[in-house]
Amino acid sequence: MQSFSTIRLKDGATDYVGQSAERLQRVIRQLEDGLEQSNYTRLITPLIEEVGGREQIRMDFTTSVARALSERGREQYKRVFYSGSVFQPEEKFQVGFEERGVIAEVEAIQLGVRLIEELTGKEVTLSIGDAGLIEHLIETRVGDHHLRDQVTQMLRLRNVIELKRIARELDDALLAKLPLLFGREGAEQILPYVDETRLNAVIDLADAVNADLDFGQMGLQTYYDGVTIHGFIEGVTEPVLVGGRYDRLYEQFGQEQQAFGIGFSVERLAEVL
């Protein structure tokens, strides 16, 4: 018989058994049921995909969803949801939903909030930013391409110390302030450097869903090019809801699409059950 004694748990992966497994399954089932009842279609993508000619374990659902929905003959699927594992590099369980075409951002955000509050009994606090708005601001102030990418990445990571260093190097005080621009005061500080109509649209969306404005919030994923949204609940330090707009992502698959999605952190939600 073949020997199986060398099987080991992959670095970053976790076994769940007993109550911990039950809590995870409760989160997954309730979120899936809520999305099915809200008329989203289930989409299952493979755990292993080919990236640049090499096999790779799925690291992100949104890119897999965009690839899958860009296949010919799938134009009718405008509202889908997914459920499964990603490795970033730790294994994480995610449930999420995505829309393309005509996007109802307010309704989608409200759905995400409602599902979490029904599951946990805790109020969700939201923060909203706009990755594309701030990217354009950075482009107008940082000429060097590599340095511009560095500023953007440091802002995604909220690395205030490194941003201050770059700001001193460029003699640009606004760059150092970007991670700390909140609310209407933050909007006033960036208003002279961004499109006013787009800025007002972000403010209106935040008002519509009762969210805080956070102009340093770009989202960790580089495909976000519009509104970004994070949701928090008491007792959990990390966001339990993350999402936003990523219209440009579909261009990489040969399509012009408006696209918006929200993902839920299953492990973080299970912590409070």
Rank of each mutant, 00 (worst) to 15 (best):
E117P: 01
L119N: 01
T120D: 02
G121H: 10
G121N: 11
G121Y: 09
V124K: 06
S127D: 11
S127N: 08
I128F: 08
I128L: 14
I128Q: 08
G129N: 07
A131S: 12
E135S: 14
H136N: 07
H136Y: 01
I138D: 03
T140S: 12
R141M: 15
V142Q: 07
D144F: 07
H146C: 09
H146T: 12
T152Q: 13
M154D: 12
M154P: 00
L157N: 14
L157C: 11
N159L: 10
I161Y: 13
I161K: 14
E162P: 00
K164C: 07
R168E: 14
E169D: 04
D171I: 00
D172V: 12
A173S: 12
A173M: 03
L174W: 06
A176L: 10
L178K: 06
P179G: 05
L180M: 12
L181T: 03
G183K: 05
G183E: 03
R184T: 14
G186F: 09
G186K: 09
A187E: 05
E188C: 02
Q189S: 03
I190K: 02
L191E: 15
D195R: 07
D195T: 06
T197Y: 06
T197D: 14
R198P: 05
N200Q: 15
A201W: 02
A201E: 15
V202T: 13
L205P: 02
L205R: 03
A206G: 00
V209W: 00
N210T: 07
D212S: 13
L220V: 08
D225I: 10
V227D: 01
I229M: 06
F232Y: 15
E234D: 14
G235R: 05
V236E: 07
T237I: 09
T237S: 14
V240G: 01
L241S: 01
V242R: 08
D247N: 15
